[in-house]
């Protein structure tokens, strides 16, 4: 069965959506990612959707769910590279994805994750 690969990069997981997501694929990704996070003990997830051209409310909700699942597992999620058309569609659908962090591209997304992670490490070392 077709699956979206989840790559491990240090303490981060990298998910690059290269095909048009259909419902089953999104559902599968959500499940796989949760399993992978627990398996690897990852601290951050980077979801790159720069190749995603079509979204509907279901896919929009899935993106939100993926981030929420990750948050429950104490993992920071950054959605990167959303296309203008996709952003407009989601807004028109009334889905502003609250609680999902976003970045313009993979580089900035990685930077954001690193900042977040270092912040938590920093706070662990220097509790207020």
């Amino acid at each position: 069965m077709e699956r979206i690969p989840i790559l491990r990069m240090g303490s981060y997981l990298l998910v690059t959506v290269q095909v048009d997501m259909h419902d089953q694929l999104a559902q599968q990704l959500q499940e796989d990612l949760a399993v992978k996070i627990v398996q690897t003990g990852a601290r951050g997830v980077l979801l790159d959707i720069s190749a995603l051209e079509l979204v509907d409310s279901f896919i929009g909700r899935m993106i939100g769910n993926i981030a929420a699942t990750a948050r429950v597992l104490d993992v920071a999620t950054v959605v990167v590279g959303m296309r203008p058309a996709v952003a407009i569609t989601l807004v028109e659908l009334g889905m502003s994805l609250p609680g999902v962090q976003t970045a313009l591209n993979v580089e900035l997304g990685m930077e954001l994750l690193r900042d977040r992670l270092e912040e938590t490490v920093f706070n662990d070392h220097f509790p207020e």
């Binding site: 959605v79 590279g81 296309r83 952003a87 807004v91 502003s96 313009l104």
Partner: peptide, 12 residues
Amino acid sequence: LKTVTAARLMGA
């Protein structure tokens, strides 16, 4: 607000 939200979704 729509414009602001769309920009935020893209990471700006």
